[in-house]
């Protein structure tokens, strides 16, 4: 796989949110305002970059048995570092992201990339993969939040949109709007990419795997990627 492809994979073809349907919780929760979504995207990208690099560096040291705890500790460390930095230098975003900031630890994208990519690729490849996935995640969040903020609140980054300000659909900024916009975005991607409708029929263990979406429910693929249920 070429370096460029490693980088661009995450942005379009394997977009973590829209195609792999990972990291849905923060996507839905913080996409009410474009600025929050951007903050969340950058924070998650920083964590992903850090954890991918460290896990890739240590991939020959960490043994199979303790790999998950090792990954979790590494990821949690980076999450805490990001929390501290945001708390110190970007207090508004820190407050807006609230509980979803520590919850980056359990963002399936990050553990998923550690398992599926970083622990078997070189540091350079893992870095590129993290940057690509991070940009894909940030971009999706940003687009979704922009839609929700512009139509739901009539503003965008503090700018008031003339007509929409008086005719905003406030439900879009509330919980149901999150599900709705997310559903429509995935449908749009399906249509645009002329994907066959994303069909995920799992059986057995794969059905319950949080990362099932990333391997399309193919059990053999699941095992090959080292995802264990």
């Amino acid at each position: 796989m070429g370096k460029l492809q490693t980088l661009t994979n995450g942005i379009i073809k394997e977009n973590p949110v829209l195609v792999l349907v990972l990291g849905t919780c923060p996507t839905l929760a913080v996409s009410t305002q474009a600025s929050n979504a951007f903050g969340m995207g950058v924070a998650a990208t920083a964590v992903l970059l850090g954890s991918n690099i460290v896990i890739s560096l240590l991939r020959n040291v960490i043994s199979e048995k303790v790999r998950i705890p090792c990954y979790i500790v590494t990821i949690a460390t980076f999450v805490t570092l990001v929390q501290m930095v945001l708390n110190a230098y970007a207090y508004d975003i820190y407050k807006a992201l609230g509980i979803y900031l520590p919850l980056i630890v359990v963002n399936c994208i990050i553990l998923g990339r550690a398992e599926a990519f970083a622990n078997k690729h070189s540091v350079l490849d893992s870095t590129l993969d993290a940057i690509g996935m991070g940009i894909g995640f940030t971009l999706t969040l940003f687009v979704m939040a922009s839609i929700r903020e512009i139509f739901g609140n009539g503003t965008w980054y503090g700018i008031e949109i003339p007509v929409l300000k008086d005719n905003h659909i406030s439900i879009l900024t509330m919980a149901p709007g999150g599900f709705f916009v997310f559903g429509c975005l995935i449908a749009a991607v399906n249509k645009w990419a002329r994907h066959k409708p994303v069909k995920r029929d799992f059986d057995g263990g794969c059905e319950t795997c949080p990362m099932a979406a990333s391997c399309g429910g193919d059990k053999a693929q699941c095992e090959k990627e080292g995802v264990q249920v």
Partner: peptide, 23 residues
């Protein structure tokens, strides 16, 4: 459902309606 909406999108939109009900 419309082809593009089959699978995940229609599931999410159903979730949106269930979420409205909880209001």
């Amino acid at each position: 459902a419309p082809p593009a909406f089959k699978g995940m999108p229609i599931t999410l939109i159903s979730a949106a309606i269930l979420s409205v009900a909880f209001f």
